[in-house]
Design a protein around this nucleic acid. Sequence first.
DNA 1: CTGTGATTTTTGTTGCAACATAATGAAGCG
DNA 2: CGCTTCATTATGTTGCAACAAAAATCACAG
Lengths: 230, 230
Amino acid sequence: MPESSVAEAAAPARPPVRLGDIAYEKLKESLIRGTYRPGHKLTVRAAADALGVSSTPARDAINRLVLEGALVYTGPKTVIVPHLDSQILEEITLIRLALEGLAAERAGSEGTQTIVAELEAIQALIDAALDEARYADALWHNKEFHFFIYRLAGLPHLLGMIEPLWLRIGASFNDLYPEFALAKYGVHNHRAAIEAIGERDGSSLRAAIESDIRDGFRQLKRAKTADHQP
Amino acid sequence: MPESSVAEAAAPARPPVRLGDIAYEKLKESLIRGTYRPGHKLTVRAAADALGVSSTPARDAINRLVLEGALVYTGPKTVIVPHLDSQILEEITLIRLALEGLAAERAGSEGTQTIVAELEAIQALIDAALDEARYADALWHNKEFHFFIYRLAGLPHLLGMIEPLWLRIGASFNDLYPEFALAKYGVHNHRAAIEAIGERDGSSLRAAIESDIRDGFRQLKRAKTADHQP
DNA sequence: CTGTGATTTTTGTTGCAACATAATGAAGCG
DNA sequence: CGCTTCATTATGTTGCAACAAAAATCACAG
């Protein structure tokens, strides 16, 4: 996945590979994949053991995740995977609309033929994953689809602010109903997005992305309210 | 200041007071106050000595600041106070317009008489500080003015995303020309903002805030280009 | 069976030493 | 005189043990 160019644009000098970074990435992955259910308690020592590192990098990783909101304190010595609070979900969605809308609008004017082709390739992966009921993969490619567009905006700091938002909803997202989260609403908006990019129409692209975000929000909210104690 | 309700809505449980937090706050303060000029190199051990703590909390604080973009890596073992890169400034401004615009719009409908009075009190502090050439204070109260409004939106996570943006530009901001940064443009936009809040007009409030941000951006950019080697 | 208090266990934080590695400066070469 | 190479210094990261504090557990009274 050649996303290094963007990363370099964001940070001209690359930080060294720290063990704590690896721990962070692994934990993040686990969170996105839904390995830990909401409410699960995280401990430094357990994470350290699980990741095969000492407590220092594990602590770094957990603290970073807490800072990003992917984990929350419930007590001075307790961090858990947060529950999907509907109020927070609404706020995140609001922020996503503002930030990802901005990124989409900016990305709109960067459309080329190759970019359209790449997006269609990703969309094909989503469709295939959906057809074959590999919902986790579909979710993953969905994320790729969005971030591929956002990267076009050429605003690396903006990108760096959007990513934690996905992590935040992703943790609870994957836990609840991954099997139908993406199936119904994604396709149409993505088609519209690809079309808008082909026409280099930033406004339409923004509209498509915002529509996608809103539809996802409704889906999530419905799943959430339907889930009052599993 | 009864803002605890908002803080609790954001984080129901308070993390314990860690030494690293204190170190972070102190460093942040130094950064905002312009104690370290852009380009200054930060080291863990030096910070630890300066703050009277061991290396672990100092490292935590520096890493956190790096994560927020208030410090940057220039090499695997070198973190410095970032220079005010005009490209980054533009991107930050773009993000600020989106995020602070959203907060302002939301805050608009929350206007009351007491709120107008409070804002006018803060504005009076700004004016007084300006008159008496206490520019650092003026800058500080300016920040209070903005965040008082943003808090009204009742979106604590949004607030948490806006703050690091101020820290980021603040570091270089205070370093360059603090003496005339605020004097010329702030008053008019703030007046408009207060008026909009009084009328509970979210759109106008957003416009006033956006105008303020844009004016500040121009001011900053001019100072930056005028400053090619001090 | 429930609520309460003490006891035990668990846990985060901190300080510190060891290690690997990058920055720095000096010397040598073109 | 400028550039490269190498040795020295300085620095970030890591692992770990000690400590204080919170959470979990359990016993016991009502």
